Simulated scan of single mutants.
Amino acid sequence: MRAPLGDFGTAAPATDRLDVLTGPVADALRHWTGSVPAERIVHVDTEPEWADTAVFVEHYGRELLERSANCVVVAGKRGGVTTLAACVVLSTTRVDVNGVVRRRLDARKASFAAMDTAVRETGMEYGGITPIGLPAGWPVLVDPAVVDLPYVLVGSGRRRGKLLVPGEALAGLPGAVVLPGLGIA
Rank of each mutant, 00 (worst) to 15 (best):
T46P: 14
M1H: 12
P166S: 09
A51P: 05
S68D: 02
E63Y: 10
A107H: 03
V20M: 00
P37Q: 04
S156G: 13
E125K: 00
S91C: 12
P13V: 03
G183W: 07
A12R: 15
L163I: 11
P131T: 07
A11I: 02
L179S: 08
P13G: 06
A28L: 05
K162P: 15
G76H: 10
G80N: 12
G175A: 08
V20T: 03
G80K: 14
T10N: 07
G137P: 02
G128T: 01
W138C: 08
W32R: 10
T122G: 05
A171W: 10
R78I: 07
H43Y: 15
R67Y: 06
V95E: 02
A113K: 02
M124Y: 01
H43T: 11
S91H: 06
L105K: 04
V140Q: 05
L21C: 03
A86G: 14
T53H: 09
G127C: 11
V178Y: 10
G34P: 15
A118F: 00
M115H: 00
F56D: 02
V88K: 06
E121L: 09
G157V: 00
L149Y: 13
A176D: 12
G79V: 12
P180Y: 06
R78F: 03
V147F: 12
D45S: 13
A54Y: 11
E66R: 14
G133Q: 00
M115A: 02
V119H: 05
L134Y: 00
G175T: 08
V55C: 07
A69H: 09
T22K: 03
V25H: 01
V88H: 08
D143H: 05
D19G: 04
A176S: 15
G155S: 06
Y60R: 05
V165W: 02
G161D: 02
L141W: 09
L5E: 09
S111Y: 07
H31G: 13
D96K: 12
